[in-house]
Design a protein around this nucleic acid. Structure first.
Lengths: 214, 214
DNA sequence: CAGGAAACGGGGAGAAGATCTCCGTTTCGT
DNA sequence: ACGAAACGGAGATCTTCTCCCCGTTTCCTG
């Protein structure tokens, strides 16, 4: 039932204000998910988008569908950032560094909604997008590792989880502007990931499977 | 009105089960605040503590008072950890490292409740505890910096905010056990903070004043 | 530029969940 | 063993979120 709205919409050319509002809602939802988590009130998203709540419900059947769309968007944009960094940067670690900071700007934290309780983790499109992203980022890391620039004991899970955590708004504060600090913290993390390793890491890197079992 | 319950309690020696339950509630609240933020349902805290909800309301007039107590507890314990690391470790950076990991174990993330909207930031006791902690941690960092082990462009705000962020539960997941990864991430961060600096940091470190203005 | 269809926004009903109290029962201290 | 204090569960009240209704506005087409 959820996917119908989207399908019907493509059938006939939508009005320009409709598509514009749709984009606004998605952008607002991405921000809101990052700031308050996947359970943020839908009315709050509508308000942030500058539209009435009915408009949101007209475009998206329920929270489930909205999360699905936002997650797909974010996955795609993160992947794009990784691909362009991979293609355009000559230095392997610099490519990784660029990706990390761009991913932060793209609000990679919105992907936390992927882990929402009611989210369909088995959707083919999502799986495909996730695998693609995983592949590109892994390539970024492998390149840096083979170039002797990245320590060998860090995995993709370390990177993605740490980015997500460091780019979230500080808990309890409405708008304490993590943007001011997160790039510093990311830079410190990256420096810590440089080879040669300055210490030994305990445990193992996170994998996507670690989050499957809710 | 909030502080009365605590004051009255100290007047006469409380029953052992009462004090025991009080401790349990505080511990449960600390965990719950870290996991779900300062707005977690009070009934959920009571349930987690293994007591009836009425018992919670008997000990703490409202959420405000509970947060106050938990924050004070956490501040004190973090400070203790910093002090013992300072006193017992000979190597300056090792002292800092030890503090960071212990602070993570002590759920420093509970301090996010300090930033809760209705929290009284001007309470003299809280200010005093915060200043004390700030002083000890600053000393830890200064020592490491003077020993040439800590890069000079990181501040206490970088450390505290990053710890808080990295030790929070991953958004959207009920219990994805950050414990498994957070020590890895903290270690990477610490490695990145080691001297000599491997890159240049942008911006400036966070200060407590940055969070005053809500 | 005018007619009609589609989209919009605000308000509010209904449902879900959180807060906090009442009161019969249990546990502690003397 | 007795009285006082604390406990726990159930439920009344209040808040908050969801989602629909319907009068109004905006956009496309001829």
């Amino acid at each position: 039932m959820g996917g119908m709205a989207t399908a019907e919409r493509r059938a006939q050319p939508a009005r320009v204000d409709a598509t514009r509002n749709r984009e606004r809602i998605i952008a607002a939802a991405r921000e809101a998910f990052v700031e308050h988590g996947p359970t943020v009130p839908l009315d709050a998203i509508a308000h942030r988008a500058g539209v009435g709540n009915a408009t949101l419900y007209r475009h998206f059947a329920d929270r489930h569908e909205l999360i699905h769309v936002v997650a797909s968007y974010s996955l795609a944009r993160i992947t794009e950032q990784a691909e362009s960094a991979l293609a355009e940067e000559t230095d392997a670690f610099e490519a990784l560094r660029r990706f990390v900071h761009r991913a932060a700007d793209e609000r990679v934290g919105a992907l936390c909604s992927l882990l929402y309780e009611g989210f369909d983790k088995n959707d083919p499109h999502v799986i495909d997008a996730r695998v693609r992203m995983e592949a590109v980022v892994t390539e970024l890391m492998d390149n840096a590792r083979e170039a002797g620039q990245l320590r060998s004991d860090v995995g993709i899970g370390d990177l993605m989880v740490a980015i997500t955590q460091l780019t979230r708004p500080i808990a309890g504060t409405a708008c304490a502007h993590v943007e001011r600090f997160m790039h510093r913290h990311l830079q410190l993390l990256l420096d810590g990931m440089r080879a040669p390793a300055r210490s030994e890491l305990c445990g193992t890197a996170a994998t996507f499977e670690d989050f499957e079992t809710t």
